[in-house]
C-alpha cells in the first residue's frame, strides 16, 4: 500500500473506541492493595494478637497453663501500683519534653532564621543530635556527661568548687527529660524553621507598616502562621515521647526503684523479666488507649488555642 493510501485510510477510519474508558478510572483498589496488605500485616495483626493475649493466661514460665481468663489480666494491671506509677511517669515525661522541645525549638528556630556568618554550619550542628541513635544518646549522657566521676558535668562542678552531682541517681526523671529533650529539640527546630521560612516576607513588612512591634509581629503574624507546623510537631513528638524506651533502657533501666519506669518500660519488664505475656499485653492495650486519649485532648487543646489566637 502506498503511503498516501495509508494516510487516507487513517483519516477515514473511525477513531478506535477508547477501550478502558468504559470502566470508571484506574483500578484503584488493586493498586492500593500492596500498601493495604502491608499495613494489615504490620499493624492490625500485632494489635489483634495483643488483644488476644491480653485475655489469656500466658506466662512463659508456666507453659502448660494457657487458657482464657477474661478480664483477669486487666484487673491485675489496675491493682498494680507500679502500673499507675508508670502511667504518671509517662505523662510527666511527655508533657515536660513537649514543653521544653517546643519552647526551645521555637526560640532556636527564630534565631537560626536570621542571617549571620556561618549559618549553614551552625544549622547542621544544631540539628545533629537528632541523628544520634537513642541508645547512643543514653550511653553518651550516662557515661560522658552525667557520670559523677568521669562526666563532663561533674568535672565542671569540681572546677567551680562544687560537689559533683549524681544526676541519674538523684534526679533520674529530670535526667531522662534532659536527654530526650536534647535529642528532640532539633526536630522541633527543624520543622519550625521550615515553617518560619515559608512565612512570606511581605506579611511581616505589612505588619511593620501597620505599626506592629517585634512582639506583636511575633504574636499576631508568626505564631498564627506556625499554627499548622506547631500542631505537627506536638503531634509527632507526643507519639514518640509516649513510646520512649531506649534512653531509659540504656541509662536507668526504669530505676532507681520505679522512678523512671514509663509505660513502655513497664510492658517490657513484665514481658521479658516476669515472662507474663498476658499481663504485659493488657498493659500494651492500656498504652494504646492512653495514646488515643492523650492525642484526642491534645488535638482539642492545640486546635482550640490556635483558633482563639487567630480570632482575637
Amino acid at each position: 500500500m502506498s503511503p498516501i493510501a495509508t494516510a487516507a485510510l487513517a483519516k477515514t477510519a473511525p477513531p478506535a473506541p477508547p477501550r478502558r474508558r468504559a470502566r470508571s478510572g484506574p483500578p484503584t483498589r488493586r493498586l492500593m492493595a500492596p500498601a493495604t496488605l502491608f499495613l494489615l500485616a504490620w499493624m492490625i495483626v500485632p494489635l489483634a494478637m495483643t488483644l488476644y493475649y491480653s485475655v489469656r493466661h500466658y506466662n512463659l514460665m508456666m507453659p502448660e497453663l494457657r487458657n482464657f481468663v477474661g478480664a483477669t489480666n486487666y484487673k491485675l494491671l489496675l491493682t498494680d501500683p507500679t502500673f499507675w506509677h508508670s502511667l504518671v511517669n509517662t505523662l510527666v515525661l511527655v508533657m515536660a519534653c513537649l514543653a521544653i522541645t517546643v519552647a526551645l525549638g521555637l526560640g532556636l528556630a527564630l534565631l537560626f532564621n536570621r542571617t549571620f556568618p556561618g549559618r549553614g554550619v551552625a544549622r547542621t550542628l544544631a540539628i545533629s543530635p537528632f541523628f544520634v541513635m537513642p541508645v547512643v544518646t543514653g550511653l553518651i549522657w550516662k557515661n560522658m556527661l552525667f557520670h559523677p566521676v568521669y562526666g563532663l558535668l561533674a568535672w565542671l562542678a569540681r572546677e567551680l568548687g562544687l560537689a559533683p552531682f549524681d544526676w541519674l541517681a538523684q534526679q533520674p526523671m529530670l535526667s531522662i527529660v534532659i536527654m530526650i529533650a536534647w535529642e528532640w529539640t532539633p526536630f522541633a527546630l527543624l520543622i519550625l524553621l521550615t515553617g518560619l521560612q515559608s512565612l512570606p516576607e511581605d506579611q511581616i513588612e505589612a505588619a511593620r507598616l501597620d505599626g506592629a512591634g517585634r512582639w506583636q509581629e511575633f504574636r499576631h503574624i508568626v505564631v498564627p502562621h506556625l499554627g499548622q507546623v506547631l500542631y505537627v510537631v506536638v503531634m509527632l513528638e507526643s507519639i514518640f515521647f509516649l513510646t520512649s524506651f531506649a534512653e531509659i533502657y540504656a541509662t536507668t533501666s526504669g530505676g532507681p526503684g520505679t522512678a523512671t519506669t514509663n509505660l513502655p518500660y513497664y510492658i517490657y519488664q513484665n514481658a521479658f523479666f516476669q515472662y507474663d505475656i498476658g499481663l504485659s499485653s493488657a498493659a500494651a492495650v492500656g498504652a494504646v488507649v492512653l495514646a488515643n486519649v492523650f492525642s484526642f485532648f491534645l488535638i482539642r487543646f492545640v486546635a482550640g488555642n490556635l483558633n482563639a489566637g487567630s480570632a482575637r
Binding site: P200, D202, Q203, R208, L209
Partner: peptide, 16 residues
C-alpha cells in the same frame, strides 16, 4: 516603618 504613618498596598496584597 511603623512610626512613619504610611500605608502600603503590596503587589501580592500581603493580607494576613
Amino acid at each position: 516603618p511603623r512610626d512613619r504613618d504610611i500605608a502600603m498596598v503590596f503587589q501580592s496584597y500581603a493580607l494576613y
